[in-house]
Each structure stands twice: as C-alpha cells, then as structure tokens.
Computed example of a mutant assay.
Amino acid sequence: MEQPLPLFARELAPADQQTVREALTLLACQLREPGAPFTSSHAVRDWLRLQLASLEREEFTALFLDNQHRLIAHETLFTGTINHTQVHPREVVKAGLKYNAAATVLAHNHPSGEAEPSKADRQVTARIQQALELVDIRLLDHLVVGGMEITSFAEKGWL
C-alpha cells in the first residue's frame, strides 16, 4: 500500500512527492523495527511532524505499544476543526484494548502552529490517563505538534 502524503507534500512535483513517501516509509519502518523499543523519541517525533504538522484540522492520534514499547499500531482516533478536537477517553481505551496494548503515546496537532498545550489538552490527557490506568495501559507521553515544534507532556513533568 502506498504511503499517504501529508498536505504540504501534495503541492510538490511528483519526484519530490515520491521522496516524501520514501521518507515516511523509512520512518514507519524504523518505528516498527523488531526489537527496537521506543527508548528514544527522535524517530517518533520526526514521523509525527511529517504526519501532523501541515494538517489544516486537528487530528488526535495514538501509537499503541507492546510491553517492550515496540509499535503495535497507530490510529487517528479523532479529527476536529481548525482549533478543536472532541476527544473521548472511552474511545482511547477501546482502541488500546483492541490492540492489546501495554502502553500508548498520544499525539495531536495544532494547525495554528503553536505547540503549547492548552488547559483543555491537559485536562483531557489527565482523564485519558486515569481511564487507561483502569485497564493497565500506561500513558507514556502526549505530544503536541505545532508546525515543526513538538511539546512533550512527559518532558514537562505532566505525566
């Protein structure tokens, strides 16, 4: 299956579009590399930047991981408007159980380009973390992508 292009790449020449597709494929392969746990977030951040940075609407994505923090699956769970996405903790838990995940990394974009999480982002993340704890799924991080900048809840000490 051909890798879908981020919005910014759709304006490029066909040869450049192919280069972006290949970069996305390489990053996705790195994320899925057998035996390579998410001990460093560089590949995840690069992949998320390419996937989310140029979107015109907010998207809320989850990366589902096994016990060794290897990627099982990634799924866009919610799509919103230019400045808001309605996120339901119940749906995050359902998806985690569907993939039998031991841990998850959440991510969403801010089309405004501002990577600083809002008060609502922090509140919903706390609710999701509580819900996931009930079913023994660890929330490792929530990353907010604003343009080329990414803010990590874990790095801020919020998780």
Rank of each mutant, 00 (worst) to 15 (best):
M1G: 05
E2K: 10
Q3V: 05
L7S: 14
R10K: 10
A13F: 06
Q18K: 01
V20A: 10
V20I: 08
T25G: 09
L31M: 13
R32F: 15
E33H: 14
P34V: 03
P34L: 08
A36P: 01
P37G: 13
F38P: 14
T39E: 10
S41E: 13
L48R: 12
R49G: 02
L50K: 00
L52R: 15
L52T: 11
E56I: 05
E56M: 15
E58I: 07
E59C: 08
F60T: 08
L63E: 13
F64S: 14
F64Q: 13
L65K: 08
D66R: 02
H69F: 14
H69K: 09
H69V: 14
A73S: 06
L77S: 01
T81C: 01
I82K: 01
N83T: 09
N83F: 11
H84L: 12
H84C: 00
Q86Y: 13
Q86G: 15
Q86T: 10
V87A: 06
V87Q: 10
H88E: 13
P89I: 14
R90K: 13
E91P: 00
V92R: 07
K94Q: 15
A95C: 11
G96D: 05
L97C: 11
K98W: 04
Y99R: 13
Y99E: 03
N100P: 03
A101F: 04
A103F: 09
T104P: 06
V105P: 02
P111M: 02
P111H: 06
G113N: 09
E114R: 02
E114L: 03
S118Y: 14
D121Q: 12
A126I: 04
R127G: 06
I128W: 12
Q129N: 14
Q129D: 13
Q130C: 05
V135T: 15
I137E: 04
R138P: 02
L139S: 07
D141W: 07
V144S: 05
V145P: 04
V145R: 00
G146T: 04
G147T: 09
T151P: 04
S152W: 04
A154H: 13
K156D: 01
K156N: 12
W158N: 11
W158E: 07
W158K: 12
L159G: 00
